[in-house]
Amino acid sequence: MTQHVVIAGGGIGGLACALALARAGVSVDLLEQAGALGEVGAGLQLGPNAV
């Protein structure tokens, strides 16, 4: 039986989840409200202890 997952939201979490599931062989539909993906001024920082 083939698994199929729908993910609502193409932010960093949604994209990471979709990529991980696709690599695991799961069929994924990623839904995003925005017409195009782009920068919104937010960033992701990793402190010295995280790296």
Rank of each mutant, 00 (worst) to 15 (best):
A34F: 08
A42N: 01
V28E: 08
S27E: 15
L19A: 13
G47C: 04
A18E: 07
T2Q: 15
G35Y: 03
V51W: 08
V28D: 09
Q45M: 07
Q3D: 11
N49Y: 08
A8C: 09
E32D: 10
L44G: 05
G35N: 05
L19S: 13
M1P: 11
M1W: 09
L21D: 05
L44D: 02
E39L: 07
L21C: 03
L30G: 05
G35I: 02
A8T: 04
A8I: 15
G11C: 10
Q45Y: 04
L46F: 14
G13S: 14
A34K: 13
G13L: 13
E32W: 01
G47Y: 09
V5W: 02
D29E: 15
Q3P: 04
A36W: 06
V6I: 15
A20P: 04
A42C: 08
P48T: 11
V51P: 00
L21G: 03
L15C: 14
A22E: 13
L37H: 10
G14N: 08
G13I: 14
A18Y: 07
G9T: 05
A24M: 15
P48S: 12
A22Q: 14
A18V: 09
V5D: 01
T2K: 15
T2S: 15
L21V: 03
A36E: 07
I12Y: 10
L30F: 04
V6L: 05
C17R: 02
G14K: 06
L19M: 13
L21Y: 04
Q45S: 07
D29G: 04
V28L: 06
G10C: 02
G35L: 06
A18Q: 07
G9I: 04
G9L: 03
G38N: 00
V40G: 14
L21S: 04
L46N: 02
V51R: 13
D29A: 15
A16Y: 10
V5H: 00
A34T: 12
G25E: 09
L44F: 11
V5Y: 00
C17E: 02
G14E: 06
A16L: 14
G25M: 12
N49M: 08
A50S: 12
G38P: 01
G47E: 10
V28A: 08
L44S: 02
H4Q: 15
G38K: 01
A24E: 15
V26K: 10
V51D: 06
V28W: 09
R23C: 05
P48H: 12
L44N: 00
A16N: 14
I12G: 01
A42Q: 06
L44C: 07
A20H: 13
C17N: 02
G38T: 04
L19N: 14
G47I: 00
L15R: 10
G41W: 08
G35M: 01
G38M: 00
G35K: 03
Q3N: 09
G43M: 03
L37K: 00
A24D: 15
A36R: 07
A20V: 12
I12K: 01
T2P: 15
A42K: 06
